[in-house]
Design a protein around this nucleic acid. Structure first.
Lengths: 222, 222
DNA sequence: TAGATGACTATACGATCGTATCTTTTTATG
DNA sequence: CATAAAAAGATACGATCGTATAGTCATCTA
């Protein structure tokens, strides 16, 4: 009979219509982020969510719809979790010290390691034009780019970042941080060191901040 | 009857055993880089190479073998093409000027835009552990990482790059450069500007070098 | 209590996938 | 020209894919 523990009639109310529905969404986000759109099947997602394949197709009529909803779910999770990482580095409280940039970068990197889904989902669709990419651009990326640029410009106004082209700087910083997470499985195998660890992250951020605040050793003897 | 124009008996010699074989390899590299391993099928590759599906399976017995050989092919192309981009920036001819770092970065970025296959193939397999990733690590990435680190250290010895952790700096530079290529389709849609253009690349490299050589605007008034 | 609604399940269809086997054509060599 | 090997093509198989449809069961409402 198995255990019928988490029965929970839910009386149809709650936030999400069904508890199993959001469990499927979470599993779908994991599988999509890991295997990509083409490599993902209803069967795999159903297995990961421990439900029948028919149920997946019942809640989300098509694979495309399921993908869209799981993307929405991931971005929502991101927007809920990210502020908690950034609140201790608030840029607009007048406390201008350079240490804040280090903390900002570190928190973003740590967040990316803790929630790799949205980065992986982004890269899964980024490299190749497709209707899905167009949808993501209109739905999320335009907004994300604008927000990122605003953060950079705010930091620049407070002399926390060098006053170069904000969009370029956003790309360079995003690249330097996100790249580390995306090639982490490679780095781990090549270097024999887990990139997702306090000391590795601290060292990496330290190097990055050292560059951002003017590389001393090259400016010193020139 | 169609056109039997490119008949070319090849007399079996040439470099590759068959001319159609390498045509399949090139097509396979394209499709694998674009769609990933799971999203790629024999049929798609055959169609891209304008041959029958059976022929693909004849030359490369399995999908895994075809993938491996196409990876080898791409890395070989890369190693043949890359020196032509770097030769005009040779680091070890005693000509130590800072302009050389800019040229080095620019050439690497330009090369990546011209030959996006190897970057995309890398990212296709990088984010998720798999037997294919293990194989790539042992076959290519360990060597690539070592070479990259050596280049960084050489530049550091000549005071062309700040003397921070070489592996971290390699990751930061790789990330900043490769990220741009990987999210180019996104950037193009969001910014309405093609990242693969002289002026965009120049501007981006300029910003990057500005950081590498000590951000002036922040060090100036501190 | 009868009916309607929503959550969930079972099953089947057509297409495509990777692979295996077989036949035909082309090429090289005696 | 004869013959063997290699290249190229044709076909079929089991499996899995996305999707469609019909059915079961519990809950809610009139």
């Amino acid at each position: 009979m198995k255990t019928a523990d988490q029965k929970m009639p839910t009386t149809h109310g709650e936030d999400e219509s069904s508890s199993r529905r959001s469990k499927i969404l979470a599993a779908a986000a994991d599988v999509f982020a890991q295997q990509g759109f083409d490599g993902t099947s209803f069967g795999t997602i159903a297995q990961a969510a421990d439900v029948k394949k028919s149920l997946v197709q019942y809640h989300f009529k098509s694979k495309e719809k399921l993908w869209q909803e799981s993307i929405h779910w991931v971005w929502k999770q991101r927007d809920q979790a990210l502020p908690k990482y950034l609140q201790r580095t608030s840029l607009n409280d007048g406390n201008n010290n350079a240490q804040m940039v280090r903390e900002l970068c570190k928190q973003i990197l740590q967040f990316t390691f803790d929630h790799p889904q949205w980065v992986k989902l982004m890269f899964q669709e980024a490299s190749t034009p497709s209707p899905r990419l167009d949808w993501m651009v209109e739905t999320f990326f335009k907004k994300d780019f604008a927000n990122g640029k605003a953060v950079i410009e705010l930091a620049q106004q407070q002399n926390l970042l060098p006053k170069v082209d904000a969009m370029d700087l956003l790309h360079i910083l995003s690249g330097a941080l996100i790249y580390l997470v995306n090639v982490a499985p490679i780095s781990q195998r090549v270097l024999g060191e887990n990139p997702n660890s306090e000391q590795y992250i601290d060292r990496h951020i330290n190097t990055l901040v050292c560059l951002l605040q003017g590389a001393p050793s090259i400016t010193a003897n020139s």
